[in-house]
Design a protein around this nucleic acid. Structure first.
Lengths: 115, 115
DNA sequence: GTTACTACTATCCTTTAGTATACTACTATC
DNA sequence: GATAGTAGTATACTAAAGGATAGTAGTAAC
């Protein structure tokens, strides 16, 4: 595996971790509101189905972005919250947002702007 | 559309522009070698089918990353090359690669490392 | 004991992404 | 005139992502 291939692999790991329709919306919802329960999240993240929410939370947990906290009293209460590790995404997300916002304007303008 | 939604939209534009299995491999191939013809690219980017290569090149062109140059002599020769605009991806790609490389190590280690 | 909440899982379906491969229209070579 | 290269397109398929909706197991309130 040469340097270029390692770069592509790292890139794909990163894109896989934050890619898809819902992951960043869930992270965003948790960022805004702190710990949330499953059904609360389903109401907050508009349009997501419980199946998809469940899958995405598992992947977010596997990637270390989200912690699942079970409060064992009755009835069982489960909360999801962001980990400190999720903050490491900040720089890369800011870079993506800035580039994306600029790109959006550029494409809207029909790419007439120089360079 | 509030600020958060605009951020998500910008993010999705960015992820869409660089996402998928092939876009960055094509960009990478063009970066390494300068202008390339269609069939050259198909040989360089291992495993891509002509259909997908054709689709991806059209999207890359629409996004302003790639320029399609037709040399009208006979036989017709078509070359694809990166635009200066494609350089604007550099910072965001570097950030993604660094984060992804770190994340890969972290996940391999079973996420035992602090934070 | 019915209703409603908790946190999900299961099943099925549609849509999107990607793969495989044949084919076209043209030019050039042997 | 058969073969091979140019730059793709067309058709048909599989695989992965996501959507819709019903159901489960438990608790609690009315």
């Amino acid at each position: 595996m040469n340097e270029c291939e390692r770069g592509i692999a790292a890139l794909e790991d990163a894109l896989y971790a934050i890619g898809g329709k819902w992951k960043l919306r869930i992270v965003s919802a948790l960022k805004d509101s702190g710990a949330r329960r499953f059904n609360e999240l389903q109401r907050t993240v508009k349009g997501i189905s419980p199946r998809v929410l469940s899958n995405e939370l598992k992947e977010l947990e596997m990637n270390g972005f989200v912690k699942r906290i079970v409060h064992a009293q009755s009835p069982v209460l489960v909360e999801y919250e962001l980990t400190p590790y999720s903050d490491t995404l900040k720089d890369v997300l800011v870079a993506l947002i800035q580039w994306g916002a600029n790109h959006r304007v550029r494409v809207r303008e029909g790419a007439h702007s120089a360079v």
